Amino acid sequence: MPELPEVETTRRGVAPFLEGNAIAGLVVRESRLRWPVEAGLDARLRGATVEQVSRRAKYLLIQTGAGCLIWHLGMSGSLRIVTDGRPPRKHDHVDLVLANGHCLRFNDPRRFGFVLFTELPVGEHPRLAGLGPEPLSGDFDGSHLYLASRGRRAPVKSFLMDSAVVVGVGNIYASEALYLSGIHPRRPAGRIALPRYQRLAENVKAVLAAAIAQGGTTLRDFRDSDGMPGYFSQSLRVYGREGEACEGCGGTIRREVIGQRSTFFCGRCQR
């Protein structure tokens, strides 16, 4: 599943081709995504100018003069820029066609992604209202985690992945940040002291920033690519490494299911 760094890399890759350009139309080949694409959306967008491409959590926000498109990549979705008129491939469900001859094309084999539209301030949309702070912003720090965790019995891994606490910390990066912080993923969130939360917040920022930096090398993949954007290879210390040796102590990396998600950790290093 694309996580925050992949969505941010996508934003940076497609924004230069969209911002400041007029929309020629919206082509919907398959409307049955996670939620159906709104009927008549093509007419509402045609002629509007793309003013800004931003991101909130894992949502890509395409702000136009007519309103805002809220795009989510789901489990398997990807976006790329192609030349208008280039034949679609299998699972190319939606095209945002621009007057400059480019087209933003959405491919999603599993159809768990979606495209929504709102004329209201985007922060008021039900999908975005109530979200926690961005993890790379100044609003997110150890004090925020500590205060939000008081009285919480849920495992800290589940707590960290709660979008009402902080947005965009997905399964991979939660596992990695907890490992770097020496915190066991099953430890109750309310039983972690402020200094440990301060370290955890710093490591969340570090692993996400490093992943985004790695993603910069793949920006060329978002234009006229024959394949789907591959995002980038990641240097992971625990995620996906069940049975391998821990880089810190030499112990064995374990995997357990927490909150219905595979969680990887070192039982020696993380307490």
Rank of each mutant, 00 (worst) to 15 (best):
G168N: 11
S143C: 02
A129E: 06
G182D: 02
L178D: 13
R127K: 07
D139P: 02
P133V: 07
L136M: 10
L160A: 01
N171H: 07
D162Q: 04
G138M: 05
Y173K: 05
F140V: 09
G170H: 10
G142V: 11
K157P: 03
R127N: 02
L180G: 00
L178F: 13
L160Q: 01
S175A: 14
R150P: 13
L178M: 03
R152F: 04
R150D: 11
E134K: 08
G123K: 12
G132Y: 10
L180N: 00
S143H: 08
G123V: 04
L160D: 02
P121I: 06
S158G: 12
D141R: 03
G170V: 09
G170W: 11
S143D: 12
V156S: 01
K157S: 07
G142Y: 06
F140I: 10
L178E: 09
F159P: 08
G123Y: 00
A164H: 14
S163G: 02
L180S: 01
I172G: 05
H125S: 09
G168C: 07
L120K: 15
K157V: 02
V166F: 10
L147Q: 15
L120D: 15
E124F: 01
H144P: 14
S181V: 01
S158P: 03
V167C: 12
L120C: 02
L147N: 07
A177R: 13
P135H: 08
L136C: 06
Y146R: 00
V169S: 04
E124K: 09
M161C: 05
P155A: 14
M161I: 04
L160S: 00
H125A: 12
L120H: 09
S143V: 06
G132K: 12
P121E: 10
D141P: 10
D139F: 05
K157L: 08
A154H: 00
V167D: 11
A148M: 14
V169P: 05
L136F: 04
P126T: 03
